[in-house]
Nucleic acid binder design. Structure first.
Lengths: 267, 267
DNA sequence: CAGTGGTCTAGACCACAAC
DNA sequence: TTGTGGTCTAGACCACTGA
């Protein structure tokens, strides 16, 4: 006989993990659980809350009760690399050109730059900066659910006014390389955060699922000094996605070095 | 006058964000909040719960009440790359040889391999596999707080029995390269999960902070086929860490390609 | 419109750290 | 010893959905 919310949750978690309850199945009703475990309604509610935060169950309202949530079996692996897509634009490997993806909304604004992005750009936090924000919450295709904020360095926009326009994202890297007369050096930093309510809503995340945050910087040398031209802040469900990178090796190898696995750009 | 738990939480969140309450400061007591907002104790408790899950406040028990939590201002950036450390072993760039880090506990066991690791190794889930698990929860140094599980492919252990021993992790990559007569190809996949209670305890994580999960595979070609010799599952606080990678470029560049930024291995 | 879960109130007992 | 938050009970009202 379970007495605490955690015990009730553990019991239900077990039933789900042992597949006695499968995706889409209804859980016992709250009143049922109250009688079954001899605890109060609040306690049962707390237990269900834990499971909801873990993304194990969901409640869509109304009479159909709480059901076991459909969970992705494996994560979609995104291999991170840059190449030209089929339209000739630079883009992340294996990502379609976003302008063609249904449900994409892009807004271009000028707003104070948040602290972490400011650090990357090497400017002061709060400086007004051009931001190109893209939301993709396409309910039909979870591959397309991501948020992307692109922050441009003011010096780059000054030198290259075309960046300020909504000229399509793909082209900006070519414009930058032409301007700098050198290839861009890209780097990505990956971390995770708990989503804000707005992010959770836009990406259709259940509460409790962390948000994977990938920040890509594009750097060129101007007058001999590195300039971070753009910081690109990408957020996606950590439950849905994993991002993949080849590891670089420093120092001489004793054997001839092979390229990264052949399928790196193809899945 | 706030009426719901979310509203009470939002009001307190605001005070913290506006720095009216700073790290270490005591929040009003629950009874104080009950009177201040005209809500019940349960509602206040729910509000404090939200803030705790966000990692904004903490309660250490006893009479000192709920306090504003000290939050890391910026994340520690870990540049991911492989090099030989000062002892001559392969290791992640800028990571000391772990055997020298105080508080490290390593256990070597044989146990059923979990599904996601099995997929990477290309073997069946549940197969008994040698696992080398390292826990580092050093309370003194947050740089050292991480969990590492190393799973070895059975075929590799069979061909190279030395891998089964507790021979120190650093050396295994050299042994593998000598065996395969080729350099290892490393790749890392990054995602995030909500920590299990055990992980949260070991890493001193407050509830609600996601766990960054980095899985590195070491691959060599044996008889012309790629073999994933080891899968290395590293977990660390997403609030404390960010991992950094250079981005590879596919296709011809119009300008001479520079190496990744100079400090890539040095911070 | 019946039954679901969501949320709040009110009151009680407990463990714990600091005084 | 005292005051803190942690947790449970019991009862009430609400919004929503699907039969």
């Amino acid at each position: 006989m379970a007495r605490t919310a955690e015990e009730v949750a553990a019991e239900l978690r077990g039933r789900i993990q042992r597949a006695e309850l499968r995706a889409g199945d209804r859980l016992p009703t709250m009143t049922g659980l109250v009688e079954e475990h001899g605890v109060s309604r609040q306690t049962v509610r707390e237990a269900l809350n834990l499971l909801k935060r873990e993304g194990l169950v969901e409640y869509r309202g109304g009479r159909s009760g709480t059901t076991v949530r459909e969970r992705p079996v494996t994560r979609l692996v995104r291999s991170r690399g840059m190449e030209r897509d089929h339209l000739g634009y630079y883009s992340g490997a294996n990502v379609q050109h976003w302008r063609l993806v249904p449900g994409t909304r892009t807004t271009v604004t000028t707003e104070p730059v948040p602290g972490d992005i400011a650090d990357l750009l090497g400017i002061e936090a709060g400086t007004p900066v051009i931001a190109r924000k893209r939301l993709n919450g396409d309910p039909e295709n979870e591959l397309h659910r991501q948020l992307t904020d692109s922050w441009l360095h003011p010096a780059a926009v000054e030198a290259l006014p075309v960046l300020a326009g909504d000229s399509g994202l793909g082209g900006i890297y070519d414009r930058i390389e032409e301007w700098a007369e050198q290839p861009i050096v890209w780097e990505e930093g990956v971390t995770a955060v708990t989503p804000s309510p707005a992010e959770a809503g836009a990406l259709l995340l259940p509460s409790g699922v962390p948000l994977l945050r990938v920040i890509r910087t594009s750097t060129v040398k101007i007058d001999g000094r590195p300039l971070v031209v753009e910081a690109n802040d990408i957020r996606m469900s950590a439950e849905l996605f994993s991002v993949r990178y080849p590891i670089t090796r420093r120092g001489a190898a004793r054997w001839p070095v092979q390229p990264a696995s052949a399928d790196f750009y193809t899945n």
